[in-house]
């Protein structure tokens, strides 16, 4: 049951993000092997898989970090395989990184301002405009709202370098959300966080994303995804070996064999 199309069950209509036959090799090793995948416009889905399964590689292919060796990527019905990461961002594909990626030499609020400024200037983000725009003047409710919801308001004027990992992950999520994406790709957003912080992020995702945009979450621990996502796919050795709702995947013999290695 390689990469089920889930055609009928697509939440919210036609797929917004899709991959067909996506393949990427690093030397002899095949990090993604002919992957077919579709994500509904308002769907929240998860990808699980062991270390080195190729999960991050799939994200990199979808967002344009790597060009695939074979196969293609679709967005909203058009092919985007050859678009640069930046062009894909313009279409509304946003992601976070496995290693929490923020600008550590800037203040928390300035991170968000940079994210917001681009969104505000969509398409006309000229160098001249950037030089003459005062960073302090970049203000918006959505920035304050994000800070509030993730309990970062107090840290707003601190440099990011001084924040703990949990706050960095929250900040990175906020930066992605401020861009008002249509598809949000999260690479292990819960890794290294406390239960409380995970709770905050889950609440934020429920509040801001459910039924509003498509979300794809990579996670190691399937339990965190249980109540959050509509669908889970299992990626092993660069191939999707199972796909379906939480219980189906959990019970599937293929998963049990090659993921949990139980008979």
């Amino acid at each position: 049951m390689m990469g089920t199309g889930v055609d009928g069950a697509m939440i919210g209509g036609e797929a917004i993000l899709g991959a067909r036959g996506l393949t990427k090799r690093f030397g002899a090793m095949c990090a993604a092997n002919s992957i077919d995948y579709h994500l509904g416009p308002k769907e929240m889905a998860g990808i699980i898989g062991p270390n080195g399964a190729g999960k991050t590689t799939v994200f990199n292919l979808l967002t344009g970090v790597y060009a695939p060796d074979q196969g293609s990527v679709f967005f909203d019905g058009r092919e985007i395989t050859r678009l640069s990461p930046q062009q894909r961002v313009k279409l509304g594909i946003r992601r976070t990184f496995q290693l929490a990626s923020t600008f550590d030499n800037l203040r928390v609020i300035d991170n968000l301002r940079l994210a917001y400024y681009h969104k505000q200037r969509q398409g006309r983000c000229s160098l001249g405009g950037m030089c003459s725009a005062d960073l302090g003047e970049v203000r918006d409710e959505s920035i304050d709202e994000c800070l509030e919801q993730l309990e970062l308001s107090k840290a707003a004027h601190l440099p990011v370098a001084s924040l703990p990992l949990g706050s960095k992950r929250k900040l990175e999520l906020a930066m992605a959300l401020i861009g008002a994406p249509r598809v949000l790709l999260l690479d292990e957003p819960f890794a290294g966080l406390s239960e409380m912080e995970i709770g905050q992020i889950v609440a934020m995702l429920r509040h801001r994303c459910t039924r509003r945009m498509a979300v794809l979450i990579i996670e190691h621990k399937i339990t965190w995804l249980k109540d959050l996502v509509d669908r889970i796919s299992v990626l092993v050795n660069g191939e999707i070996i199972a796909d379906g709702d939480y219980q189906t995947v959990l019970d599937s013999p293929v998963t049990r064999k090659s993921y949990w290695r139980v008979e």
Binding site: V89, R94, R95, F97, L114
Partner: peptide, 17 residues
């Protein structure tokens, strides 16, 4: 700010568009 952001994490800034 964008310059400093390039210094800290160029990839990330690209992914802000």
């Amino acid at each position: 700010a964008a310059c400093l952001a390039v210094k800290a994490n160029e990839r990330k800034l690209q992914f802000l568009g």
